[in-house]
Design a protein around this nucleic acid. Structure first.
Length: 201
DNA sequence: CATAGGATCGCCT
DNA sequence: GGCGATCCTATGT
């Protein structure tokens, strides 16, 4: 089966809110030492660059950590959160435009036994072990070493498997854990697939 | 150099 | 729902 890896131009749009919704239903894949693991993206958050108080690049802040955000879209931005969680973002837009999309949850599809092992779990709690930005990176083997990697080839890429999420199946809500972002705190820039296990009643 | 706090998680009560 | 883990980053002196 031929893989339909998203091309570099997919990531060049400045319409970060629309792009965050388009990523829902795409597949985040890693291949590390021959181990292929993947899951369908079911939750994202938009971080709108220099004008967004929740963004690491707010007010055009450029540091060694945030420099990756200023790359041309189509690379990974991975950073360590709370000293123990590796959070994976998709950098978007043209060079020097530091917008990014945080991947918050996936539905595991490929290499489930490998992902369970990485998560140090034995029983398969279906679809419940890659929810949350810190756990999905652990399952996929993504660490800060992936920071700056292109999303078009091994060891990490995003592919289209022909799934289209209708607009009316996308639910928007405020972003998580950014209470410090003042007037940008309540922007509805967190997107989930309504029918996914994480949002199902 | 010192310090506070963070785009979280899992275990405890 | 509360809290400890755990360490890098950004900021200030």
């Amino acid at each position: 089966m031929k893989r339909n890896i998203l091309p570099p131009k997919f990531y060049l749009s400045k319409e970060i809110v629309a792009l965050s919704q388009t990523l829902l239903g795409k597949f985040l894949v890693t291949e590390i030492n021959g181990d292929l693991t993947a899951g369908m993206i079911i939750e994202t958050e938009a971080y709108n660059g220099i004008i967004d108080k929740a963004s690491h690049a707010y007010n055009n802040r450029r540091t060694r950590r945030t420099e990756t955000l200023y790359c041309q879209g189509g690379v990974a931005y991975v950073y360590l959160c709370y000293g123990l969680h590796h959070l994976f973002n998709v950098v978007t837009g043209p060079k020097d435009n530091p917008q990014a999309i945080l991947i918050r949850a996936i539905k595991p599809t490929d290499g489930i036994s490998i992902m369970l092992k990485r998560r140090k779990l034995t029983a398969n709690k279906p679809s419940q072990f890659t929810q949350g930005p810190g756990t999905l990176t652990q399952a996929l083997g993504i660490t800060t070493h992936f920071d700056g990697f292109a999303l078009t080839d091994k060891p990490v890429w995003i592919e289209d498997r022909g799934i289209v999420i209708p607009k009316n199946e996308i639910v928007a809500s405020p972003r998580v854990g950014i209470d410090y972002a003042q007037e940008h705190r309540d922007l509805p820039w967190r997107f989930q697939i309504f029918s996914s296990p994480s949002t199902r009643c």
